[in-house]
Design a protein around this nucleic acid. Structure first.
Lengths: 194, 194
DNA sequence: GTCTATAAGAAGATAGAC
DNA sequence: GTCTATCTTCTTATAGAC
């Protein structure tokens, strides 16, 4: 499972390519041939590293989970207080606006696809969303909204997912700027209340 | 295109079955065999009514467009004023909470799937979302928010799509109740301002 | 560890009988 | 208008040589 000893191994290259393609094309419509073409290996070589496509998906979800944990930890280390951390989260959508407008939210679209097919990896994908939820809740708690912290965290996730969904559907990057500005206003209004 | 003379024709049965299956399973992972099983026809019979799968999708989008137009017109006829109409829109999510929690928003998930693959029918699906946007904008204009009407309409769509996405991902019906209550509070606050 | 060759099945689509 | 039979292509997966 670890890639400590083989940082550039074929296995890791497969996971990295699958990670990108699953995001851009969806899991179901990404074939082994697609991944193989990117990694420059043959289709047969796949089954030396993974037993099935679902096993690749599991590895991709594990990768994204780790990456998300790392990102949230980095935000917590960079930003001095909870208010700044919440704003850092909001800025993520502006930062990734090009990819979001093209392919949607990586977490949201994966959860949507897996939830609709009651896929075994469904809960693993939802777990990534939960990581954000828990991290956001902790920031709202630090801001003094102990009682409503989880509701506020979910509300912020709702708006983020909605912004990504509409930016994707309308192919409209500018929508992200405008709606995130409203989110920042809302965060400011919470801060003054506490 | 019209179904006036053949209300229960095979063609209409195909469209109705495809409409449901495209929603529940997605377009790409719904096969001719799936639809044929529901309609109780053979796979070959398909091509007497449609030349390709994309043509079925076009018919489904046309059906949904008509249905949406009818629903919005009915809401406008039922609700006395713009404020009541906006609340009627918000209630739609509560009303459809079971399906939304299972399969997501029918419009949002279709737009997301087609946008990611740059599908020819992409704009047709986004058009349904535009119908909601235009209808909502008209209500905000009637409420006296002429300048901001479109931004307010988009904001309401953002929250609706986000609510549907999270209810689907977390399999959480209750989230819809709580977030729609917040939407209603927001609508109330707009009314008193005007 | 990587390859070629190939199986086994599902998909969209066609031809032609009835 | 509906069917069966068939074609082609794509997909996942396996077997075995190197």
């Amino acid at each position: 499972m670890s890639n400590k000893h083989h940082p550039a191994s074929t296995r890791d290259a497969i996971i990295a390519a699958a990670d990108a393609l699953f995001y851009q094309q969806g899991v179901a419509s990404t074939s082994f041939a697609d991944i193989a073409a990117q990694v420059h290996i043959s289709r047969g070589n796949f089954y030396h590293h993974f037993r099935s496509k679902d096993e690749i998906l599991d590895a991709v979800i594990a990768l994204r989970t780790d990456r998300t944990r790392g990102m949230l930890a980095a935000w917590a280390a960079e930003a001095p207080d909870a208010g700044a951390r919440l704003r850092r989260f909001a800025r993520m959508l502006v930062q990734n606006r090009d990819a979001i407008q093209r392919y949607g939210c990586p977490v949201g679209t994966l959860c949507s696809e897996l939830a609709r097919h009651a896929h075994p990896a469904r809960d693993g994908a939802a777990m990534i969303l939960e990581l954000f939820r828990n991290w956001l809740r902790a920031q709202f708690e630090a801001l003094g909204h102990g009682q409503d912290a989880d509701a506020l965290a979910l509300h912020l996730l709702v708006r983020s997912q909605g912004i990504a969904a509409l930016a994707h559907a309308f192919h409209d990057e500018d929508l992200i700027h405008r709606e995130i500005a409203l989110v920042e206003d809302w965060l400011d209004s919470l801060h003054t209340h506490s």
